[in-house]
């Protein structure tokens, strides 16, 4: 591992100053479960890290009127177990407790989680493999290699790496927003504008400036929260990244007609994926096996199967179907 300077600011303002004054390539360190891991593998090599994990200002959670708010430094385990989140937004809670392990959830923050990096083995594997994301212009070993878990949606000729996270997939379905701060002050952006598709520059994964820090994640309150679930299909029942996953949330009227529908897809795309056309296909319909399956098919209409993971298209359709039916049951609670 390259040696690095370790900086511990004692306030968010101090962190912003330190970041602004830092050498290019300096990174924020929160739980470290992505960053320190990749530094150990030699994939990341920042000259300095700014450790924000002790900043109490960043750990506030509130579930008051109108919105939920999660400080970027709150731990995954804490948000997953929050009683209001569990009851009123099961998809958010499930996306967290079905991710990683309890040890990692005690370390990892809900802000750092959003910026976790792909688990593509060639990206993590280091210099012996061509990887345009790690080393621009070196090619993409996955295109002719092990692509079983790579992206079906949003990929490019340069990179087919899957965005591996769960939490952002549930958040995107609920129109979450981020408050971020930098030397030019605070701004707010929709979570849907945070991640970008690889295109011809897979190094660029998100739209935050290098000197910006995520303060908090806000989720507008919605009755669709109660009728929601995060359905995650893995190679084993627990503690694995998604082969396919779906966050689904619905609101039904007294006749059982769908009046609101949200669908996020995980494990299948280069970024957290919102399936808007699939959502629209259900509005005004009864939620049945048939309409739910149809929505799944719409969600994957543009899927481009990878060579050894083509089964994940049908699996994804069924994941959406089951998620919608579970969400419908939740909504009728």
């Amino acid at each position: 591992m390259r040696s690095f300077a370790y900086v511990v600011p004692d306030s968010v303002a101090g962190a912003v100053d330190a970041l602004a004054a830092a050498e290019p390539g300096t990174k924020i360190l929160a739980g470290g479960t992505t960053l320190y891991d990749l530094m150990k593998l030699g994939v990341e090599a920042p000259p300095a890290v700014i450790d924000i994990h002790r900043l109490a200002e960043l750990t506030e959670i509130s579930t008051g009127e109108g919105e939920l708010s999660f400080g970027a430094g709150a731990k995954m385990a804490e948000v997953a177990d929050h009683p209001v989140v569990r009851r009123d937004y099961p998809a958010l809670s499930e996306s967290l407790w079905r991710a990683a392990s309890q040890q990692l959830r005690n370390m990892a923050t809900v802000g750092g989680n959003l910026l976790q990096r792909t688990r593509c083995g060639y990206f993590r594997g280091g210099a012996e493999f061509g990887c345009n994301k790690r080393d621009p212009g070196s090619g993409c070993a996955a295109l002719e290699g092990l692509d079983r878990t790579h992206a079906l949606l949003g990929a490019s000729d340069a990179c087919i790496a899957t965005y591996p996270g769960d939490w952002a997939v549930a958040l995107i379905a609920f129109d979450a927003e981020l408050d971020v701060v930098g030397p030019r002050g605070e701004r707010t952006l929709p979570l849907g504008d945070l991640h970008v598709e690889p295109g011809d520059n897979p190094v660029l994964e998100h739209t935050l400036a290098a000197d910006e820090l995520i303060l908090r994640i806000r989720v507008p309150a919605t009755p669709a929260g109660r009728g929601s679930t995060y359905h995650k299909i893995r190679d084993r029942e627990s503690y694995a990244f998604a082969l396919t996953s779906a966050a689904a949330a619905v609101t039904l009227d007294a006749q059982g007609t769908v009046t609101d529908c949200r669908i996020g897809l995980g494990g299948v795309a280069t970024r957290p994926w919102r399936a808007t056309a699939a959502e629209r296909s259900l509005l005004g319909e009864q939620l049945t096996m048939g309409t739910a399956r149809h929505a799944g098919e719409v969600a994957f209409a543009d899927a481009r199967p990878v060579r050894t993971g083509a089964f994940r298209v049908e699996l994804g359709i069924r994941t959406v179907t089951d998620a919608l039916l579970t969400a419908g049951k939740q909504a009728a609670r």
Binding site: S3, F4, A5, V7, V8, A48
Partner: peptide
């Protein structure tokens, strides 16, 4: 107060 190790360029310091 901010605690920092020497900045990179020089070998990073012990903490």
């Amino acid at each position: 107060m901010m605690k920092t190790s020497p900045t990179a360029g020089r070998p990073a310091g012990l903490v």
